[in-house]
Nucleic acid binder design. Structure first.
Lengths: 203, 203
DNA sequence: GTCTATAAATGGATAGAC
DNA sequence: GTCTATCCATTTATAGAC
């Protein structure tokens, strides 16, 4: 029972893959159909048009992120002690489990291109790449300040300083062309080094 | 003597503008010619093909950046005292005079799109957006550590922490769709706030 | 649900007149 | 240097058979 994927699901999967590599506009319906193994016209049975495929992908990522959020909150609530190492590992975790999650990473790649000319894509990029992680980080720092793990400071400012390091390493090493294990490793190490440095100062 | 711009210059100027808004691939020769006011075929008198226009733009930005670099080095060499305010203003200066320089900004916009699928664009993005500013910042921190303005620390790490704040604010507020004065103001203030916070810790 | 066939638009690029 | 005219490839999308 492995190949139970409907044609519609396969279309979405292939579209996500291709869009993330070349951008929404640069991928043709023909490109998608060629990989899926159906004729061009058949795709219009499953989706009204090309944009409808993209819209469907956006709905799916919202569900995924919502699920990740509740999982992460549950894990973090149990932490009672935050040594420097743990701070670094949480930061690397944001990279590995969120920004580099296969689905999230591909969607970020698509929106990176589309947000330059599409206001709606720009909103979605803002939400997925900046707003959601920053709110998450801010809540963590709120708890940490309250529990006395870091010196008192505005949690929003701490979150921004902290996440800027992660986002910077992500953009510098993981975005653009092929993503290799080597690049992921370099990004992780840059994050560890910079977060450790910042954390030492803020305690 | 204002309209002495050759057709070739106008083509480049229009192409830069259009490429930066929609991406290299999404802009057609027809689009460019319509704005310039010439027929499609005429463009092939000035440039071998579409790619040749882009190549020419890349050569020009290299010349511009080289000029900016020497200017900036001259200005910074005269600074003998770096209070917190000056640190913030230098950071905002990197945003306003480099990342938001009209030519640099448009080129970054183009490369943001193209680097997702073109290895050469990826290299150029890396060079213009990461390598050059980081080397510049590193040299500044080297001087500052030497002159005793900041506590001793690896200049490369300081440069990365410092520039990450600038890049983050730039990406969060200034990239994607229309760039407004309001967005620039928010980015500047975020940089000022975060740099002041970091600088207070590293002295 | 998938196919063939085809419409209608848009793309890059060239030949040759002026 | 710029034009008209044209070629050929590619694209989105639809109509209608199976």
């Amino acid at each position: 029972m492995e190949d139970k994927k409907s044609t519609k699901d396969v279309i979405e999967q292939v579209a996500l893959e291709l869009f993330s590599k070349k951008g929404f506009k640069a991928v043709s319906i023909r490109d998608i159909c060629k990989v899926v193994g159906i004729k061009e016209s058949s795709i219009y049975y499953h989706f009204k048009n090309k944009q409808a495929i993209m819209d469907s992908l956006l709905v799916k990522i919202d569900l995924l992120i919502e699920k990740m959020k509740t999982t992460f909150n549950g894990v973090f609530a149990q932490i009672n002690n935050v040594p420097e190492d743990a701070m670094c590992e949480v930061a690397v975790g944001v990279l590995m489990n969120y920004l580099l999650n296969p689905y999230v990473y591909k969607m970020i790649s698509i929106l990176t291109i589309e947000r330059m000319s599409d206001a709606n894509a720009s909103k979605n990029y803002q939400r997925i790449v900046f707003d959601l992680p920053l709110i998450q980080q801010e809540q963590i720092f709120e708890q940490m300040v309250r529990k006395g793990f870091v010196k008192e400071n505005a949690p929003a400012v701490l979150a921004q300083e902290y996440y800027a390091v992660i986002y910077f390493a992500f953009q510098k090493n993981c975005i653009g062309c092929e993503l290799t294990d080597e690049k992921i490793k370099i990004a992780s190490e840059e994050i560890r080094g910079n977060i450790a440095d910042i954390y030492r100062k803020m305690r």
